[in-house]
């Protein structure tokens, strides 16, 4: 279906917010995403993006330019049409005490964590390798242990700071090596762990098995249907 671009705001050189109309009557849960098709002839597949904010008539995305499709989307103007399918994936419905949850994001993985961060009573570690996300934290008024691999008060990886928090559950989204480090931690310390797992998708709607991820039981699960929020302790980060 087609939606209209309402607004686009650049928060840093390569990171922008895209707000589009929402004509479908549905509620979008944390973790659910949408897939966008650009008219580019050499990038024919749809691209998945997390819905960071869902309101009655508007969807908001936080997107980082990493290649041709994201660059094309970054050039859309107010009023342009967007070929989009939503909502996709399973939303997070598990009964969880968010006060006893530690959220961890690396880079653009923050897009999938933002929908969880409500009120002020949450613990959140955010790793920003290149120092690009300061305005993102400000825009969404996020309170985070904000770390950086080079400068900044908290020098190091997001995963270096886990011990500073007291929690029972972890929810993480970011690069695979981060998700894997979190699993090692969760297993060593007996924590419940949800990983928001991102894999290259072809259809995003369960038709092709392109996005399947291996679990420790030796089978595969489709991220676009069963995820992207998965039991992080079960995934085999090959």
């Amino acid at each position: 279906m087609n939606e209209k671009v309402l607004e686009k705001i650049f928060l840093s050189k390569n990171i922008f917010l895209l707000k589009i109309s929402k004509s479908k009557d549905c509620k979008i849960l944390p973790g659910q995403f949408a897939s966008i098709k650009t008219p580019l002839k050499d990038k024919i597949l749809r691209r998945p993006f997390t819905v960071v904010k869902d309101s009655q008539k508007k969807l908001t995305f936080l997107i980082k330019v990493v290649g041709d499709s994201t660059e094309y989307i970054s050039n859309l103007k107010k009023g342009d049409l967007v070929d989009i399918i939503y909502p996709l994936g399973k939303g997070f419905e598990e009964k969880t005490d968010f006060k006893r949850t530690l959220f961890i994001a690396g880079g653009i993985g923050i897009a999938a964590i933002i929908p969880f961060l409500r009120g002020k009573d949450y613990s959140f570690i955010f790793g920003d390798k290149e120092g690009e996300y300061e305005n993102v934290l400000k825009y969404f008024s996020l309170k985070a242990l904000y770390c950086h691999e080079k400068k900044n008060k908290f020098k190091g990886f997001a995963t270096d700071f886990i011990n500073r928090f007291d929690f029972d559950i972890m929810i993480g989204c970011g690069p695979k090596n981060m998700l894997k480090t979190l699993k090692d931690y969760a297993q060593k310390n007996g924590k419940k762990y949800f990983a928001i797992y991102e894999e290259v998708m072809a259809c995003g709607v369960g038709l092709c098995n392109g996005c399947s991820v291996k679990t420790q039981n030796g089978d595969y699960i489709k991220i676009c249907k069963e995820g992207p929020i998965l039991n992080g302790n079960l995934i085999d980060y090959e």
Binding site: D42, I44, V200, A202, N209, G210, V213, K214
Partner: peptide, 20 residues
Amino acid sequence: KIGNKQPRIKEVYGGLLNSI
């Protein structure tokens, strides 16, 4: 049949390669 390891999809000019 458990299928192949990731990556399973690679978009290329004019189409895609799959190894499901």
